[in-house]
Design a protein around this nucleic acid. Sequence first.
DNA 1: AATGAATGAGCATTCATTCAT
DNA 2: AATGAATGAATGCTCATTCAT
Lengths: 192, 192, 192, 192
Amino acid sequence: MKNKKELIMKSVMSLVKENGIKGLTVSVIAKHAGIGKGTIYEYFSCKEDIFFAAMEYGISSCVKEISEKTFINQPNYKQAINNFINISYEIVKSGVFIAFTTNPKLFTFDSYKFDEIREMMTKQFEPIITVSHKINKIGIDEDIVKEPINPLTHFIFVNMILSTVMQIVHGTIKKGNETNDFLYQMALKLFN
Amino acid sequence: MKNKKELIMKSVMSLVKENGIKGLTVSVIAKHAGIGKGTIYEYFSCKEDIFFAAMEYGISSCVKEISEKTFINQPNYKQAINNFINISYEIVKSGVFIAFTTNPKLFTFDSYKFDEIREMMTKQFEPIITVSHKINKIGIDEDIVKEPINPLTHFIFVNMILSTVMQIVHGTIKKGNETNDFLYQMALKLFN
Amino acid sequence: MKNKKELIMKSVMSLVKENGIKGLTVSVIAKHAGIGKGTIYEYFSCKEDIFFAAMEYGISSCVKEISEKTFINQPNYKQAINNFINISYEIVKSGVFIAFTTNPKLFTFDSYKFDEIREMMTKQFEPIITVSHKINKIGIDEDIVKEPINPLTHFIFVNMILSTVMQIVHGTIKKGNETNDFLYQMALKLFN
Amino acid sequence: MKNKKELIMKSVMSLVKENGIKGLTVSVIAKHAGIGKGTIYEYFSCKEDIFFAAMEYGISSCVKEISEKTFINQPNYKQAINNFINISYEIVKSGVFIAFTTNPKLFTFDSYKFDEIREMMTKQFEPIITVSHKINKIGIDEDIVKEPINPLTHFIFVNMILSTVMQIVHGTIKKGNETNDFLYQMALKLFN
DNA sequence: AATGAATGAGCATTCATTCAT
DNA sequence: AATGAATGAATGCTCATTCAT
């Protein structure tokens, strides 16, 4: 059942959000998912597979949500950036989110090589780069953004937004229009 | 002995660089440090304290190295940025390094609250922001960078460099003058 | 399973009888019980709980056995006292048995306060006092023992028997009719 | 130095009185005695030797105190018994005291055989039997106690007093003249 | 397919003992 | 003689994984 696999991954995401990955045992996951411990091993071959899959699933979900909600109601350039910031904020605030730059050597995985984890992350984040493309397509249409755009710029733009959002969530950077406007100004600079 | 405490932390750093944090037992640390297991508990009260201290020490060392080597030989603005990139690259390549945006919920700590870890990281990274200030002081002196600078810009600049460097290390972004020049161009945009 | 809990406690009793409490590890208990180490922790939350429970169980069993076997075959007063002595002897000789006066501060418990241990012991020994009541009820019926009896006398009588039996087991006091008769004479004095 | 050996044993006695034998480490003993850990091993060859010696010393001290103070001020028979009870009470209340009937299998010794411990205890307690002899010598002189006395009676008398005292300390038996008088009456019965 | 009782490898931590000073 | 830093054997406890039902 794809259903039960998803149920397990959602439980993991939820539990990590609450208390972190430490002390998250298979028993706890099973209890939270409302199924038997043995059942989990029908769908995953070991604990690390569960975590890996859950991480992949979690990132993928977040990314999908950002990708979709950023463009709701046909926003203009500035609105799109605002949406991007605000939605990312909601997601990061809600709990688990791993930015580009996380060091895989600090995870509790050993059946996966570090590179596998990083590759997975890089791959899952790709749609976020597409978000940048789509946002700036709007900018181009509005004649605010100039072509051609160096592909790296998208990476830097996305990273700027997400890392700033993470600091907002942590309270290091102030949340509000001022910050959003500043990021908008920075975007204009990056893409011109 | 401050000496032995440092010895232990260096062993941890070294071992994490090689094989990651998974499977890093107190026995392994002791063996690598060439001391007895019991001795470690003379200097740290539990395993998590060792990791926390080692992380703090490791970040602090990296940051100090970047802070110093960036300004060797009185570089001009462009050279300073180049230095910043290249030194960061060497350090990130050498192993352990955690960027701003790492999610503490994914670490194997539980005696430390997530916030303690994040605070420590934030605090340790502060000198890097100072690096940005010093680099751009050079830019100002060279009339390449305009005052005043919004403080957030420094955060974004540093983050841009470090996250790009991390991708270079991972092989996702190409290493070379081209990338360095691009980052320099971006810096000029951010600070103007 | 009440079954397995009992199995564990019996193993502890048996092992303490053989070699004392020192060096009695959870592994050893598990091996002797023929179960896995982890299984023990399904039924007890820590090692001290096992010991506490085993002691309670052990004392309770001994006391129950004494209580029952003393009155087998409707003994007269003298026979009842003889039974009491002989059965106690068998039990004390068989191994674990803790008399009233043991000092709980010398046990290897720390999750239990001394008072808890003492209370448990006092409570478990209560049925022995009842044995004295029943024996002397026979004596009263035979007109050998006079009423009323000060309640303390029962305590002293029981203690006299058990401490003497313990010395017999240790070889300090000679086993035989002579000693039994002496104790009988003493009982007559105490209860008249 | 006999001085230092005694200092160590007194520390052990004092610490056991306070917190029991559990968790009583050599470090703690050294700290309490105000000497270095290594120094302890100048006087004792292992930890169990310390405990064994301290127990012997502790019992011996108690017994000596009882033996002396019972006969202060040339008491008559009843006063002597009263003294015996009251002094024993003070000593038992003060902490460590191990009665005849303690089971050596429950101690944390393994370099000593159970029999060695028991023998030591039996030997140390001997002077208490002498106390009974001396008390009853007074009784004989007063024509309250009849000769000859079966040697076992002394054992039973001493045991009666001590076990009752222990219950008084524990609060199970009421402290006061009433109890003392009762024990006196019992003594009269035992020795007649 | 689903379960959870049973397992034991694995690890953090303690502490008696040693020995260089 | 006195010390206490260093040690590592020993052990309680956890938890991923299995498997009989």
